[in-house]
Amino acid sequence: MATTFTTPKKQLTFLITGCSSGFGLSLVGLAQAGGHTVIATSRNPSKTPELVKEVEIKGGKWIQLDVDSPDSSKVIEELESSGQEIEYFTSLQTLNICLNNAGFSIFATVETSTEEEIRSQMETMYFGPLRLIKAVLPYMRQRRFGIIVSMSSGASLSGAPTMGPYAGAKAGLDGMTKVLAKEVAAYNIRTLTVVLGTFNTSLGLNAIFGKIPLPEDYKQTTAENMITWLKTGKVPINGDKDKAMKAVYDVVVGQGIGSGKEAEPLLLLGSDMVPRAKLVQDTLAHSLEVFGSFTNGVNIDK
């Protein structure tokens, strides 16, 4: 039987990471336009003073947050406790939605990726979100309401060559979130994993490449072609980020396409996600077809 979730008919408070551009900035605008309170975050707010001013004029707040920092979770306690002391923060003391969006990609083969590069991907897109989730859950559980949203990628389903570190970090968060959903559903806390294809954000345009050059054996392989292609800066884009984030916003607040779909834990966005999802389905089906007899044949004899 599917879990039934309820969403309060009131102004909600969004905490969104990675708001200086792309998906995060789009979501900030949508949430504020919808009458909700937004706490926007970025690593260096001083680089986007006009954006900060625009958000705060509309009643939101922009704070500095480096999700890589081991102390990043302290922001949750500070925001929650501030409502008890400062009148301005009264509406901010209940964080309803924690939306993990901050991220970047290092393009390198699994063989040539340095441990430092792999750890940096895991820090930003696994440990960073996990710290915030762990910090906000006790408050959400106490209030019997909350929504944890994680922006994932099609790379977590079937990553392209040179996306191993990125895909691993995204897949790790996806796997953890699946378990989390089962643990917190009883407290009216739901999760939403948004699996995204290619969109008109700066992720591909600001590509970071691994420090170690490809070995000679990789010449003319798909891995080398991928890096060469990315370096041209002419990566084809399929998706409109604002349309995609409107879909995310609707599912989160339960309106439009999200009306009555609060229990749905997964949202695939982007036309390139259709063949990727089909590939995963076909791969699993093929494995069962080829090895199905062994799948069921390795149980303990009784």
Rank of each mutant, 00 (worst) to 15 (best):
T4D: 05
T7C: 07
T13P: 04
T17S: 15
G18H: 06
S21H: 08
F23H: 04
F23E: 02
L25N: 04
L25S: 05
S26R: 05
L27M: 06
G29T: 03
T41C: 08
S42K: 15
N44C: 07
P45C: 02
P49I: 08
V55G: 01
K58V: 00
G59V: 10
G60T: 03
G60P: 12
G60I: 03
D66T: 01
D66R: 03
D66K: 07
D68L: 11
S69V: 05
V75S: 13
E80N: 15
I86S: 13
F89R: 02
I97A: 09
A102G: 10
S105N: 09
I106Q: 02
T109A: 05
T114F: 07
E115I: 14
E116F: 08
Q121E: 15
Q121P: 11
M122K: 01
M122V: 06
E123M: 04
M125Y: 06
F127G: 09
G128H: 00
P129Q: 04
R131W: 01
R131I: 01
A135D: 04
Y139C: 15
M140D: 02
R141I: 04
I147S: 11
V149Q: 08
V149L: 09
S150P: 03
S152C: 10
A155W: 05
S158R: 13
G159W: 04
A160M: 12
T162E: 12
A167L: 10
G168I: 11
G168D: 11
A169V: 09
K170N: 10
A171G: 08
V179F: 01
L180K: 00
V184H: 07
Y187A: 13
I189Y: 00
I189T: 00
I189R: 00
V194H: 03
V195I: 13
N206T: 04
F209T: 03
K211Y: 05
I212V: 12
Y218L: 13
T221E: 13
A223T: 08
K231M: 10
G233N: 06
K234W: 02
V235H: 13
V235M: 14
G239C: 05
K241F: 13
D242C: 00
V252C: 04
V253E: 09
K261F: 13
E262W: 05
E264I: 14
E264W: 08
L269E: 09
S271Q: 14
D272L: 14
P275V: 11
R276E: 02
V280P: 00
Q281Y: 11
S287P: 07
T295V: 06
N296Q: 15
N299P: 00
